[in-house]
């Protein structure tokens, strides 16, 4: 499982880096780069959630998914899988960064931490199907930032969030926006 996580993370990192490099060379807009990064992240996230977690935990019930997956001999949660990839990227580069956040996070640290994050997360909830773009300054550096909606793609997403003791929202249905993917690229 760890190997699978690392492979996906490495793939995402490789594609991301290649995008950032080619963007700089060919003058692609930061918005376009962020959109492409999101396509990769979103596809990997949906594939893991639908083809691994939903199939094995809900449909076939052969294994569970757990935050403490090593102690529990379980699958990492989809949100963890996404975070592992994001942290793996941060191990290698600061050319771009991303995070999965929500206005109703189970883990408080995944709530909005900047004004742009708060505004963007609200925007994707209020404007189904649209993305939010903006700029912000963090730690003395200017960033292009994009916020993309993150949906409850399968029943496993909704049931886990609705049943978790720390979830502030208990009425999630498949198809709802649960939060957003925030991508940042430094403006140099």
């Amino acid at each position: 499982m760890k190997r699978t996580s690392l492979t996906i993370a490495a793939l995402a990192f490789g594609i991301g880096s290649a995008m950032a490099t080619s963007a700089a060379a060919e003058g692609i807009s930061l918005r376009k780069v962020a959109d492409m990064l999101y396509q990769v992240m979103s596809a990997d996230r949906e594939v893991y959630t639908r083809r691994v977690v939903q199939r094995l935990t809900v449909d076939n019930k052969v294994v569970t998914a757990s935050e403490h997956f090593e102690d529990d001999t379980a699958l990492p949660l989809p949100a963890q899988m996404f975070r592992f990839g994001a942290e793996r990227v941060m191990d290698e580069t600061e050319d771009f960064s991303y995070a999965l956040l929500s206005l109703n996070p189970i883990n408080r640290k995944n709530g909005p931490g900047t004004d742009l994050e708060r505004k963007g997360l609200q925007f994707v909830v209020d404007n189904p199907g649209e993305n939010f773009y903006g700029e912000e300054e963090l730690g003395g550096e200017r960033y292009f930032a994009a916020v993309y909606p993150d949906y409850a793609v399968v029943e496993a997403c909704a049931s886990c969030h609705n049943g978790h003791k720390d979830s502030p929202r208990r009425d999630i249905e498949v198809g709802d926006v649960m939060g957003g993917v925030v991508i940042r690229i430094p403006i140099k």
Binding site: E94, S97, L138, P186
Partner: peptide, 12 residues
């Protein structure tokens, strides 16, 4: 872990 704090959103 260090990687958690390298994300610019942790600047504050």
């Amino acid at each position: 872990p260090r990687k958690k704090f390298r994300n610019p959103r942790m600047a504050a």
